[in-house]
Design a protein around this nucleic acid. Structure first.
Ligand SMILES: [Mn+2]
Ligand SMILES: [Mn+2]
Ligand SMILES: [Mn+2]
Ligand SMILES: [Mn+2]
Lengths: 215, 215
DNA sequence: ATAAAAATTTAGACAAAACTAAAAATAATA
DNA sequence: TATTATTTTTAGTTTTGTCTAAATTTTTAT
């Protein structure tokens, strides 16, 4: 697989999580910052290689092959993110773009030795699960902070989108993975939350609460 | 720079060490396993980007820009090799191909953090010097084993070519970087050497002796 | 049900990096 | 020096991945 093909497969994998019955051409184009016509061309090629099943105008799904490949790319991406944060001391908002490049390094042995070196982590710095060597992903019941019961203690376990701005906002509010969090009040007008984190009370917008996973 | 451009620049850098007054088109083609006509095309492009100075039929040299870039690619290659051997436990004959890919990862910050993480190594697993953050390379007076005085103690400090077969041969003979080595006798007919390594006597062909650096 | 809007695909073009075959320049040799 | 031989460059293709513009299909709205 070329780097470009890998990028398409990974995007289709991520989009499949929300539209399992078929991923739209436009959605792929949006994620890859490319044009719909380019996507169509690539879908034909991926289909010829039996990585996706594709019928004109009907959207696309991953084949067994494509699904396996996608999980291996995600595995590499997330293991490299762990390496960058745990070993090299990068902040969690700095690692995504570098991991986008590192995920395309070919060696199987490399990634398995890296896995071992990192002590077989199950989650990446953003709380996303890391597929193991067989592609098995640890499932965790997690809720968005916006869907949580009042006055019950939860633990922060992940972020939905890991944009730099969002992650830096969490840093500023001293919210990290593992932080204990209790929703004290919910403003019915705009769903703003009054929460307690690290024994301090802060208010959190609905947009933020919709991007923070707790458990 | 694209990956392909980086590969050309690196090859020109290495060939410049032996032909400083100009590198041949054919030599580049040989190293990159490509055709001379492809090399000519690329040299024009690199010349337009002020990475090489090139005049038809006259061979090519690196510009100041090209030289700086080349050293940064070599720096990345060798730092990654150290990482693979020291941290991930690869053997010294297994790391070259993986480093060929890793050397093209773009981030400056990444390579400097990696450098720090590895404790600013001056040499890679094959004894080749690693340019520092400013491109400065530590010079070492080293001789080929074939050029050495008899009955004098030397230390093995590097290999000239790091092909897997050669490195595995050295492993088999228990010759590693740092090994003490004394040439006892030199067969005048074919320049075969009788040497002492690790208090054991072994015979070494001229071809081997021409590829092993000592100090 | 028909028309308008949106999504998707086709057709044709382009840039990067490679190739083959042929022409041109340089180097080697008789 | 004249003639080969070698090296290098040019000319013309090919493949990959992208693009724009136009055509087609599907979806939405009247
Ligand atoms: Mn990421
Ligand atoms: Mn991540
Ligand atoms: Mn190497
Ligand atoms: Mn090396």
């Amino acid at each position: 697989m070329t780097i470009s093909e890998e990028n398409y497969i990974k995007v289709i994998y991520h989009l499949s999580q929300v539209s399992p019955k078929g991923v739209n051409t436009n959605a792929i184009a949006g994620m890859l910052d490319t044009k719909a016509s380019s996507v169509t061309d690539m879908l034909k090629k991926l289909s010829d290689k039996d990585l996706v099943s594709y019928q004109k105008y009907q959207g696309v799904t991953l084949t067994e092959n494509g699904f396996r490949s996608a999980k291996m790319i995600v595995r590499k991406h997330r293991l490299w993110e762990v390496f960058l944060v745990e070993k090299l001391g990068f902040a969690w908002d700095e690692v995504h773009d570098i991991a986008e490049e590192l995920e395309h390094i070919k060696s199987e042995t490399l990634i398995n030795k890296l896995d071992e070196y990192l002590d077989f982590p199950a989650f990446d710095p953003h709380g996303d699960p890391i597929p193991d060597v067989n592609g098995v992903i640890k499932k965790v019941n997690k809720l968005l902070l916006s869907e949580v019961e009042l006055r019950k203690e939860y633990q922060c376990v992940g972020v939905k989108h890991s944009s730099s701005e969002f992650l830096q906002y969490l840093d500023k509010q001293k919210i990290a993975l593992g932080s204990k969090i209790i929703v004290k009040e919910k403003e019915s007008f705009d769903d703003t939350l009054l929460v307690e984190v690290n024994s301090k009370e802060i208010t959190i917008s609905n947009k933020i609460a919709n991007n923070l996973y707790v458990h």
